[in-house]
Amino acid sequence: MKGVERHYEMPSGVVKALDGIDLTVKEGERVILLGPSGSGKTTLLNCLSALDSPTSGTYTFGGDEVPSQNSEQMTKFRRNNIGYVFQFFNLLQDLTVLENVLLIQELAGAKDVARAKELLSMVGLSEEVDRFPGEISGGQQQRVAIARSLSKRPRLLLGDELTGNLDSETSASVMQALIESCEKENITAVFVTHDEKLTKYATRVIRLDSGKIISDETTQEA
């Protein structure tokens, strides 16, 4: 990202959610974005995932410019490159654990039952594949969400407060499962969180305030 800005027109005036972001994420890095509410971290994540379009600046991914105007092209970009884990898991209640994973593969046009089961096994859910989301715990659901987001081999995994709805013990196990999966699959990851304790899982910690990067620290080698 180079000189990325995201402005919102509000009745009170223009809000600069992102104000000149210069950011390069290398392959295999696990970046955590920290910052107070309104600092711009979720907006940055949305721009990274092509859910939102920068007002100005450039965003390239693997050397190619990321589409920012055409909704279908932005969706295609996400489908081919991005995995996403939500705070509230957002699993489909009518599908079993396994089917939730398979659906994303189907959408990406590469259904692979063996890989789906392998991923579920990797996050410790090999016994739960035929259960519905409503039948398993929150931590287990978030692990399903992780397996789901990895199932299509995304190049970039994004997570927004992905442990925000879990207790600390469950958070730790979910993050552990996530890091192991990312390492094993060599997936680059960017997570947004308020929780300083999660920085230990990152290779790089970026702090934002008022839409600007105020610190960028590499904590361990990717």
Partner: peptide, 13 residues
């Protein structure tokens, strides 16, 4: 919510 989830995860229109 369900459709938005799928859309975020890359499902085309």
């Amino acid at each position: 919510t369900e459709l938005a989830t799928l859309r975020v995860l890359g499902a085309s229109t």
